[in-house]
Design a protein around this nucleic acid. Structure first.
Length: 508
DNA sequence: CTGGAAAGCGCC
DNA sequence: AAAGGGCGCTTTCCAG
């Protein structure tokens, strides 16, 4: 079997007889696309094989794999890239098969690569004049806050420097210093610390507002327009299919998976994401995906029942934990229950829950105790999951994706605790990632089969964003909902909310 | 001047 | 003893 290589692709494309092999199919497709070549039929992606085997985002690129598995230092020669790619393919493809991940590879990861390539090439349109307006508005607010903060401090200083801010607040104005310390013994000025002081101190409230404005202006409002592709006038992110150990995608240059939504100002920024003239944006997101997967994987009777009955899950948890009927659950109780539900998924401690809810550690312990008394299946699931990871050393998703957890039997209690939380969270986060990836592949195929013009643009973990001509909106809404909800059969229903609008904010 | 660590914070 | 899982980006600060 001889390797053919294309020097202008730096060895990306190797044709090994009948089997088309690349070290990175998505990059190969994008590079070929720029040359006007519509390539199809790649069967083997060495980087994806490596990622399935190691779940190590920093170690699955060709150079690192060549070093680790073949003890070869990769040079610039395309011939070497081609040879190494084939050598690794021969080793990794059978290993993926042997570990039971051939189906995950063939039905999800490999077919996803061309979908991501098309999403990146499509890009997303931004209303730059809207962002310019916001930028000027925010500039004025920041200037006002800066002079007010300096006024109260009695001197000028760099408000963006945590070090200088700490000196002003805790040494000069003698505000109560936080218990929380950074690694270098610096007193923390993080938002949760400042919020403790905000009620009593005007300057702290202004610093928090200053932080929000400078963060959003610097990271989004001013940064995004600079990244527009001149040729398309659109924003083209990169989706990294090997970017997160759990199996999630990541997004960079720019990261379009962390566009603001929480605050009103943030939502203004999101409203600047718009469809091409005359088209619509369509947003579809899985409702409570990780908690539904917790219900399925734990088979907890109450959790399963709650989702089957279509109940509001946080209200139900509040009702269970407090022992009151759902109609008597106050908004505050629901908020607390929501924190408990997320805490379960993340492996929170009583200490952490207490800090977040502003209650005593004893109160938090009661909440957690009550939770597990009512959701005994969840307790069993968590214990069984940790036990299995102790035995096997890996977590596994519903679709068979593995993640090594080497520290699970560490004698260091800190490292072991971290590993145990990771062991519980990874199957949930990872299965959710598998599920939406599968949905993306199904939707892409269905759009292709129906010859729709609508395009998938973005994925944000439990949400997909599409751009649709108005006459397709209705049909594509149904298609997307059907393919997402039908991606997999669980003990509980999968629910997808679909919205349509003239920008990303209003479509949600 | 550059690179990296640390702090902080945006999202799910 | 630490104390919530997964990311990427910006700014500050400091060492080389």
């Amino acid at each position: 079997m001889t390797a053919e290589y294309l020097p202008h692709l730096k060895g990306w494309l190797e044709d090994a007889g009948a089997a088309k092999v690349a070290c990175d199919v998505k990059s190969a497709l994008l590079a070929l696309g720029r040359l006007g070549i519509d390539a199809r039929g790649f069967e083997h992606d060495v980087m994806l094989y490596a990622f399935l085997l190691d779940a190590d985002p920093s170690g699955c690129a060709l150079e690192e794999q060549a070093r680790r598995r073949l003890d070869v230092q990769l040079g610039p020669a395309p011939e070497q890239h081609a040879d190494i790619t084939l050598e690794l393919w021969k080793q990794l493809a059978p290993a993926v098969e042997a570990r039971g991940m051939a189906k995950l590879y063939a039905e999800i990861e490999l077919p996803l690569a061309p979908v991501l390539a098309r999403m990146e090439r499509a890009g997303v349109r931004i209303d730059t004049s809207e962002l310019r307006r916001l930028s000027e508005l925010m500039e004025g607010q920041i200037a006002r806050l800066t002079s007010q903060i300096h006024g109260i401090a009695g001197r000028t200083f760099n408000i963006s420097s945590p070090q200088q801010l700490g000196e002003v607040l805790f040494d000069e104005l003698n505000l109560p210093a936080p218990v929380k310390y950074g690694k270098g013994k610096t007193r923390s000025t993080a938002a949760d610390v400042l919020e403790e002081l905000a009620a009593d101190h005007e300057i702290v409230r202004q610093v928090l507002e200053y932080r929000q404005l400078t963060k959003l202006k610097g990271t989004y409002v001013d940064a995004l327009p600079a990244l527009l592709e001149p040729r398309t006038g659109r924003l083209h992110t990169s989706f990294n299919q090997t970017g997160a150990a759990t199996g999630r995608l990541s997004s960079s240059n720019p990261n379009l998976q962390n566009i603001p939504i929480r605050t009103e100002l943030g939502r203004e920024i999101r409203a600047a994401f718009v469809p091409q003239e005359g088209w619509k944006l369509l947003v579809a997101d899985y409702s409570q995906i990780e908690l539904r997967l917790l219900a399925h994987m734990s088979d907890d009777a109450r959790l399963v029942e709650a989702f089957r009955d279509g109940e509001d899950i946080h209200t139900r948890t509040a009702s269970e934990v407090l022992g009151v009927p759902p109609l008597m659950v106050t908004p505050e109780a629901r908020r607390d229950a929501k924190a408990v539900n997320f805490g379960i998924v993340y492996g929170i401690s009583a200490f952490g829950l207490a800090a977040q809810l502003g209650i005593s550690r004893g109160e938090a312990e009661k909440y957690i105790k009550n939770y597990f008394a009512r959701y005994a299946g969840v307790r069993r699931f968590i214990d069984a999951t940790i036990e299995e990871v102790r035995r096997t050393g890996v977590t596994r998703t519903l679709f068979g994706r593995e993640r090594p957890i080497p520290e699970i039997n560490s004698r260091n209690p800190n490292a072991r605790g971290f590993a145990e939380r990771t062991a519980v969270n990874s199957p949930l986060q990872g299965t959710a990632a598998d599920l939406i990836k599968l949905a993306m592949v199904r939707i892409d195929a269905a759009l292709e089969a129906g010859a729709y013009q609508s395009a998938m643009l973005l994925q944000v973990h439990d949400e997909l964003v599409f751009e649709c001509p108005p006459e397709e909106v209705e049909a594509v809404s149904k298609l997307v909902k059907r393919e997402m909800e039908g991606a997999c059969q669980l003990n509980v229903p999968l629910v997808v909310d679909v919205g349509v609008g003239d920008n990303w904010r209003d479509a949600k």
